[in-house]
Nucleic acid binder design. Structure first.
Length: 955
RNA sequence: GGGUGCUUAGCUCAGCGGUAGAGCGCCGCCCUUACAAGGCGAUGGUCGUAGGUUCGAUCCCUACAGCACCCA
C-alpha cells in the first residue's frame, strides 16, 4: 500500500468494476427496497445539493443491499420543459433566430440534439459521487414509455371529469409567453410607489380616492370597492364613477375584502389582472376587461393613445395624463411584493387565458361523480394524516397537509413546444376530443366532430410527468416488458411493481408541493398505493457562513472541484464565466481570491461523502465548511494507515482464529466496542441520523481502534506470549475487516480498495461472503458482502472494565509527563502504592503494556508504611500511581497541580452533598438517581483521600 | 397576517429532566519504527432574556428578543 491515502488513484478504478459486476441491479432475492432518484434536469449539472442528497441515497442503498434487501435505485432525468427550451432558444438567439423561424418540428428536433449532447453530463457526475444506481433502468420523462403513462393519466382523468379546460386567470410569464404554476412564482419585495388617484362620482361634485401600486391597470377597472361598514362611503355604494382617461362608467360596490384602514379604504377592481380583484369581480358578476396582450403591451380595449405601449411605459403615460387632469392626488414611496417568474425573472402578469386544469377542489361533479377533492386531494392528505407516509423530520408533514388543505386547481398546460403535447383535439365548432391519438379521440367522442380536427398546441407541465415517476418508471401502464430506444428492457410492471411503494424518498423541502404531493396524488389514484413509506427531507446546503449559495455571490462550490481540487486561476475563470454584469464579476473574483488564495485542495469523493454524512442532522440547513471536509480526509488517511499497520503485521497465508476465542483483554474489549458501535449505527440508519452514524464510526476507528487497540497490539505482537500475538493479529484483521464493511456505505472507494488488500481468500472473509455470491472464482467485492451486525460479535464487560482501568492509569501517567514537561522519549521510573488486590492483579497483567506505552521502567510496588520518595501522582480509585520527582519534577509545581485537582474534586463533592442533603431530592428522585449520586460521592471521596494522602507525603 | 425552525466553546454543530460534548481553530511538548493529513496534553461555555412547572431545567411550559425560511 502507498504510504498515504491518495483518493484520485483509488477512485478511478472501482466504479466501472462495481457497475460491471451487476451488483447495482436488483438481486431478485430478499425484501424489496427501492429509492427513487428525484430526476434532475436532463441538461443540468451537479451541484452541492445534488451531491448531498445523492450521498444520502447511496448510503441507504448500499447499506440495504449489504443487508440482503432486493435493492433498486431507480434513476433518470426529467425534460425540464421551460429550462431546456430556454437554453435552446438562447442558442438560437446567437444565430439571430427564434423558435418560430425553425417551426415546431425542427425546433423539437434541435432540443433532442441538445439533450443527446448534454444529457449525460449530470449522470456521469453522479458516478463520480459513487452513486450505486441501476443505470440499466435509467429513464427520461420524454421516453416513449413514460410518455404513454402521461397520455393515459391525462385521458383517464379527463374522462373521469377531473381534468377540464377553462378560461381562468393564471400566472402569465410575458417574456416566455407561457402560463407558469403559482409555485414557479416568487414574491419579491421591491421599492415602488403608492399612487392616489381621484375618481369623480358621475353626476355629482363628489369623488373617491383610490390607492394603487399599478396605476396603468386602471384602464381595466370595472368597479371601486369599499367596506360594507365604512360609513364614509356608505352613501356612494351603488352609485357610478366616471373612470378617468377612459370615460367608462363603473359602479361603487361593497365587499368585506376591503381593509377600511388601509390607504383611503377604496380599492380599484381590475379583475383581468389581479387575483383578488378577479374573485371580487366574480362575486359581483362584473365581467373582466383584459387590457394587455400576451406580451404585456396595452391592447385594443384601452383608449387608443395607450395601445401598443409596454405596461411600464403605459404606467408613465397614465400618470402624466392624470397629473395633467389634476386627478393624481399623491405619490409616495412604497415597498411592494412583486410576483417574479422563477424561470425568466420577468414580472408575472395575471392573464385570462384558456388553460387545462386538474380539479383538486370540487367535492362532487354536476353529474354526481366525485370531484377532484374527493378523488385526488383527500386520499393524498389521508396518506400522511393516517401515518401511512411518514415525513422525517416529522414536522414537515404540517407543511404538506396545510398546503393540501388550501390547494387550488392545478394549471397543467404550458405554452411551450418542448414537452408532452396535450392529447386533445378541437373541431371547427370548438368541441374537445381527447384520446391517445386523433383516431382514438374521434372514436371515444360522443358527438361527431364538425370539420377537421386540430391538436392542442400546448404541452403539459413537466411536473405532470414527474408526478407519475413512482409507477411509470416501473413500466406502468404497459403490463409487459418496456424497452428503451436501444431495444433494452428497462422495466416490466408485472415484476417490478414489487418496488411500489418505495422505501423512502430523499428530497428537498422546496419540492414538497411541486413533486411530493403530486406523486402521492397520482400514485394513490392510479395504483391505489402510496408511492413511498417515508419522505426524508434533506437539509439545504449553504456556505460556511450560512449564506445561500449563489453564482452572483461567488460562494458556490462545485462538488467535483472538491473531489479533484482546482487551482485558483481556473476557479476564478469558471466562477465568473457566466456573469455578465462587470461589477458582479469583480465582486465574485475578489471573494474567490480571498476565500481560496491557494485554490481548493482535492479531498476526494470519500471525504466529501463523509462530510455530508457528518453534517446530516435533522437541521434544515447545513453550512458546508471546507475545513470540515479536510478533517474527514484526514480520517480517511487515518483509516488507510491503520490498514497499513495491520497488513505489515500479518503473516503470509491463512490467519487462523484462536480456538478458544480472543486471548487478550484488549481484543475482547475492542470487539465489545465494535458490537456497541454497530448497534448505534443500525439505529442511526433507521432514524436517518447520518451525523451520529458517522460520528459513531469515526470515534470507533480513531479513538478506540487506532488510539488504543493498535497501540495495545504493539506490545502484544512483540511480546513473548506467542498465543497472544497470534490472537491479536487475527483480531486486528477481524475488526479492520468489519469496520471496512460498516463504513462502506459512507466511504465506498477507500473501503473497497483496502478490503481488496486484505487476505480475502482466508476463512475470515469467506464466511462473510453472501449466499448470492457462491462463486469463489469471482473476485469478491466489499459492496456485495454482508453488513456487519451487532450479534456477530460478543460483548465482554469484564474485559471492558479491565481496559478502562488501564486507560485511566495510562492517561494519568501521560498527564504527569505532559504537565511536568518530561520529554515523551525519556523513560521514567514508576512506583505504585495502596490500591486493592484487583489493582495488583491488573498491574501484573498489564505491566508490559504500561511500560511500553507510557515509556516507564517496570512498575515497583511500595509496601504499606514504607518510605516513599517525593513523587507526582495519578489516582485511580485507591491506587496511587507515582512518578518519582528526583531529577524530573518540580516539587512546587506538583504541589500546585495536586491542590488544583483537590479543589476541583471538593467542588464536585459539594455538589453531591447539596443534592443528598436535600430531603425532597432523596424522597422524590428515582432510587437509581439517588444511588448514582451516592456512588459518585463515594468515588470522589476515595480519590480525594488518595490525593490528600499524596499531598501530605509531599509535605 | 398564518406557519415552521433556529439561538450551546473563537467557528460549524450535536446533545439532553440528573457530572455540558464533537470536529475545526487556538496554546504547550514531541518528526516515538501505521499515520506531522500524526501523537500526547491543556485552555475554553452562568446553553439568547425573563418568568413558570419540578426534588432538580441547557432540556418541558409561557412570554419576550434576535435570526432564518415557507405560505398569503
Amino acid at each position: 500500500m502507498e504510504k498515504s491515502f491518495e483518493p484520485a488513484q483509488i477512485e478511478s478504478k472501482w466504479y466501472e468494476r462495481w457497475e460491471a459486476s451487476g451488483a447495482f441491479q436488483p438481486s431478485g432475492k430478499g425484501e424489496p427496497y427501492c429509492i427513487l432518484l428525484p430526476p434532475p434536469n436532463v441538461t443540468g449539472t451537479l451541484h452541492m445539493g445534488h451531491a448531498f442528497q445523492q450521498t444520502v441515497m447511496d448510503m441507504l442503498v448500499r447499506y440495504h443491499r449489504m443487508r440482503g434487501f432486493n435493492t433498486l435505485w431507480q434513476v433518470g432525468t426529467d425534460h425540464a420543459g421551460i429550462a431546456t427550451q430556454k437554453i435552446v432558444e438562447n442558442q438560437l438567439a446567437v444565430e439571430e433566430k427564434t423558435r418560430h423561424d425553425l417551426g415546431r418540428d425542427a425546433f423539437i428536433e434541435r432540443v433532442w440534439t441538445w439533450k443527446e449532447e448534454s444529457g449525460s453530463t449530470i449522470t456521469n457526475q453522479m458516478r463520480r459521487i459513487g452513486a450505486a444506481a441501476d443505470w440499466s433502468r435509467e429513464r427520461f420523462t420524454m421516453d416513449e414509455g413514460l410518455s404513454a403513462a402521461v397520455r393515459k393519466v391525462f385521458i383517464d382523468w379527463y374522462r373521469a371529469g377531473l381534468i377540464y379546460r377553462g378560461n381562468r386567470l393564471v400566472n402569465w410569464d410575458p417574456l416566455l409567453g407561457t402560463a407558469v404554476s403559482d409555485l414557479e412564482v416568487n414574491n419579491v419585495e421591491r421599492d415602488g410607489h403608492m399612487w392616489s388617484i381621484r375618481y369623480p362620482v358621475a353626476g355629482s361634485d363628489e369623488s373617491l380616492v383610490v390607492a394603487t401600486t399599478r396605476p396603468e391597470t386602471m384602464l381595466g377597472d370595472v368597479a371601486v370597492a369599499v367596506h360594507p361598514e365604512d360609513e364614509r362611503y356608505a352613501h356612494l355604494v351603488g352609485k357610478t364613477l366616471r373612470l378617468p382617461l377612459t370615460g367608462r362608467e363603473i359602479p361603487v360596490i361593497a365587499d368585506d375584502y376591503v381593509d377600511k384602514d388601509f390607504g383611503t379604504g377604496c380599492v380599484k377592481i381590475t379583475p383581468a389582472h389581479d387575483f383578488n380583484d378577479y374573485a371580487i369581480g366574480q362575486r359581483h358578476k362584473l365581467p373582466p376587461i383584459t387590457i394587455f396582450t400576451l406580451g404585456a403591451k396595452v391592447n385594443d380595449n384601452a383608449p387608443e393613445k395607450y395601445r401598443g405601449l409596454d405596461r411600464y411605459d403605459a404606467r408613465k403615460a397614465v400618470l402624466v395624463d392624470l397629473e395633467a387632469l389634476g386627478l393624481l392626488v399623491e405619490t409616495k414611496p412604497h415597498k411592494l411584493q412583486v410576483p417574479v417568474s422563477q424561470r425568466s425573472d420577468a414580472v408575472i402578469e395575471p392573464m385570462l387565458t384558456d388553460q387545462w386544469f386538474v380539479d383538486l377542489t370540487s367535492d362532487v361533479q354536476t353529474d354526481g361523480r366525485p370531484g377532484g377533492r374527493k378523488a385526488i386531494t383527500e386520499p393524498a392528505l389521508d396518506a400522511v394524516r393516517s401515518g401511512e407516509i411518514k415525513f422525517v423530520p416529522e414536522n414537515w408533514s404540517t407543511t404538506y397537509t396545510q398546503w393540501l388543505d388550501n390547494i387550488q386547481d392545478w394549471c397543467i398546460s404550458r405554452q411551450l413546444w418542448w414537452g408532452h403535447r396535450i392529447p386533445a383535439w378541437y373541431d371547427e365548432a370548438g368541441n374537445i376530443f381527447v384520446g391517445e391519438d386523433e383516431a382514438d379521440a374521434r372514436a371515444s367522442a360522443s358527438v361527431a366532430p364538425v370539420g377537421t380536427l386540430r391538436q392542442d398546441d400546448d404541452v403539459l407541465d413537466t411536473w405532470f410527468s414527474s408526478a407519475l415517476w413512482p409507477f411509470s418508471t416501473l413500466g406502468w401502464p404497459a403490463d409487459g416488458p418496456v424497452q428503451n430506444e436501444r431495444g433494452e428492457v428497462v422495466a416490466n410492471w408485472e415484476q417490478d411493481k414489487i418496488f411500489l411503494p418505495s422505501a423512502v424518498l430523499v428530497t428537498g423541502f422546496d419540492i414538497i408541493f411541486f413533486w411530493v404531493a403530486r406523486m402521492v396524488m397520482a400514485t394513490k389514484y392510479f395504483t391505489g398505493q402510496i408511492p413511498f413509506r417515508e419522505v426524508y427531507i434533506n437539509a439545504i446546503v449553504r456556505d460556511a457562513e450560512g449564506q445561500k449559495m449563489s453564482k452572483s455571490k461567488g460562494n458556490t462550490l462545485d462538488p467535483l472541484d472538491l473531489i479533484d481540487g482546482i487551482a485558483l486561476e481556473p476557479l476564478v475563470e469558471k466562477s465568473t464565466r457566466s456573469l455578465l454584469i462587470p461589477q458582479v464579476r469583480a465582486k465574485v473574483e475578489k471573494r474567490i481570491r480571498k476565500d481560496y488564495p491557494d485554490g481548493i485542495p482535492a479531498i476526494g469523493t470519500d471525504a466529501l461523502r463523509f462530510t455530508f454524512a457528518a453534517l446530516a442532522s435533522y437541521s434544515r440547513t447545513i453550512n458546508f465548511d471546507i475545513k470540515r471536509a479536510e478533517g474527514y480526509k484526514a480520517f480517511c488517511n487515518k483509516l488507510w494507515n491503520a490498514a497499513r499497520f495491520v497488513l505489515m503485521n500479518l503473516p503470509e497465508g491463512e490467519i487462523a482464529a484462536p480456538v478458544d476465542g480472543p486471548v487478550t483483554e484488549a481484543e475482547r474489549w475492542i470487539i465489545t466496542r465494535l458490537k456497541y458501535t454497530l448497534d448505534y449505527v443500525e439505529q442511526h440508519f433507521v432514524s436517518y441520523r447520518f451525523d451520529q452514524l458517522a460520528q459513531a464510526l469515526y470515534e470507533f476507528v480513531w479513538n478506540e481502534y487506532c488510539d488504543w487497540f493498535l497501540e495495545l497490539s504493539k506490545p502484544a505482537l512483540n511480546g513473548d506470549d506467542a498465543a497472544a500475538a497470534a490472537s491479536t493479529r487475527h483480531t486486528l484483521l477481524v475488526v479492520l475487516e468489519s469496520v471496512l464493511r460498516a463504513l462502506h456505505p459512507v466511504i465506498p472507494f477507500i473501503t473497497e480498495e483496502i478490503w481488496r488488500e486484505l487476505p480475502v481468500r482466508s476463512s475470515l472473509s469467506a464466511k462473510n461472503r453472501p449466499a448470492s455470491m457462491p462463486d469463489s472464482s469471482k473476485e469478491p467485492l466489499i459492496l456485495e458482502c454482508n453488513y456487519p451486525r451487532p450479534n456477530d460479535y460478543v460483548a465482554d464487560d469484564t474485559a471492558t472494565a479491565e481496559i478502562e482501568w488501564f486507560k485511566a492509569v495510562l492517561s494519568g501517567i501521560r498527564r504527569i509527563r505532559s504537565e511536568m514537561n518530561i520529554p515523551p522519549g525519556k523513560a521514567i521510573p514508576l512506583l505504585l502504592a495502596d490500591g486493592d488486590s484487583g489493582d495488583r492483579t491488573r498491574v501484573a497483567k498489564f505491566a508490559t503494556q504500561i511500560a511500553f506505552l507510557a515509556r516507564t521502567e517496570a512498575p515497583q510496588w511500595i509496601g504499606a508504611g514504607a518510605d516513599e520518595p517525593a513523587a507526582a501522582a495519578a489516582v485511580v480509585g485507591t491506587l496511587r500511581v507515582l512518578i518519582p520527582l528526583a531529577g524530573l519534577i518540580d516539587l512546587a509545581a506538583e504541589k500546585a497541580r495536586l491542590a488544583k485537582e483537590i479543589g476541583r474534586i471538593e467542588v464536585e463533592i459539594k455538589k453531591c452533598e447539596g443534592k443528598l442533603g436535600n430531603a425532597s431530592f432523596v424522597a422524590n428522585a428515582p432510587a437509581e438517581v439517588v444511588a448514582q449520586e451516592r456512588q459518585r460521592i463515594n468515588d470522589w471521596n476515595t480519590t480525594l483521600g488518595a490525593l490528600r494522602e499524596q499531598a501530605q507525603k509531599l509535605g
